[in-house]
Computed example of a mutant assay.
Amino acid sequence: MLAEQSSSHTLLLVEDDDLQARLYRTMLYRERGTEPVATDEGGGETGTTVETVRTLEEARTALEDDESFDLVLLDLNLPDSLGLETLDSVLETVDGTAVVVLTGIDDDAIGREAVERGAEDYLVKDRVTPRLLDRTVTYAIERRRRVTEIERQRNELAVLHWLVRHEIRNDATVVLGWAAALDATDPESERIVSRIEEAGEHIVELTESVGVMVESLEEPQTELVPIDLVAVVEEEIDRLEARHGDCTVAFDRPEGTVSVRADRFLNVVVRNVLTNAVVHGDAEETITVNVSRGTDGSAELTVSDGGPGLSATDRRRATERGYTTDEEGIGVGLYLVRTFVDRYGGSLTIESDPERPPGTTVRIRLESEH
């Protein structure tokens, strides 16, 4: 795949030694099996193109005038610049273009520092072979392409994060405020206002879940630290009862703390499991929550509702992205839960509660911190 992609790249070779420059061009053309071929509007084959300049100033001018270069093959020691400052200057000029450093010094430390400063790779001149040069150039271009794509996606996620956490959430809050101000004078009006409030609260909960998911994608995976699962569950039960005043939660907790390895998103995991029990359970039934210590050194959280229960297919698919048993809704909560439980090295199962059928029990097992 990569070898096929290499046939139409445009490279800028920055090398003041004419003999070396001819050698690199020959290597590239021979290894790729093509010479540059001119094309016209009628079409034709396009080969690898290598443009050569001798100085840093010429390189910067070429890069500023032409943004189509896929890679810069850069000699660090030029008539008007020496060492890693040459690389720094080129990196200030390019945007999304891969840079591979050429050095005449047989010192891997310089190459590693060049990569740390932003180069995709480095080559020691005395060790360059046609195959090594071609592979290095091809993989460097592909790595830079992927990094650029990831950066683009991260920027899009940042925009999505803003829209979800601010614009959509703010509008939902306004809807809830106006719904609370309505004066329902008959059962039909009460039903309509109640539906508006339920929909508004559901939107707020979805924005929280989606916002957390986007936030977790935006940042590197955080280090897992000891967190008291009991304290987190108590906090989220208080939050749930404040938001859903008609729900009843029975919490069976052990003595002392139950420390698990997790990160700051553990609250979101517990919050979504509890909310799922409210949304899909029976409002008149008590939600049962239990935290226990496993004999194998693990910790377990179970949340059981008194709803109609889930079929075997629904239980198996409930944590898939976008899956829902409600044709009008989109499943987010349990997919989000599974994502973080996997990150913590734990497990998640969904089962019928044999003690209180039909109902549904969500069981999360996490590594405990001794």
Results as ranks from 00 to 15, higher is better:
L2C: 07
A3V: 13
E4Q: 14
D16L: 08
M27Y: 09
E35I: 15
G42P: 03
V50C: 04
T55C: 07
L73C: 08
D75Q: 04
N77G: 05
P79L: 05
S81K: 04
E85R: 13
D88P: 02
L91I: 08
V100F: 06
A119Q: 01
Y122V: 07
L123D: 04
L132R: 13
A140I: 02
I141F: 03
E142N: 08
R143Q: 07
R144K: 15
T148G: 10
A158S: 13
L160E: 08
D171L: 15
T185Q: 14
S189L: 04
R191D: 00
V193S: 00
S194T: 13
R195N: 11
E197V: 14
A199S: 12
H202W: 15
E205G: 10
S216E: 14
P220L: 03
I237V: 15
H244M: 12
V249A: 03
R261D: 08
L266A: 05
V270R: 04
N272C: 11
N272P: 04
E284K: 15
E284I: 14
T288C: 09
V291W: 00
R293K: 13
T295W: 12
D296T: 10
G297M: 03
R317H: 14
R317S: 11
G322F: 09
Y323Q: 05
E328G: 14
G329T: 15
G333N: 09
V337D: 00
D342E: 10
I350S: 08
V362H: 05
I364Y: 07
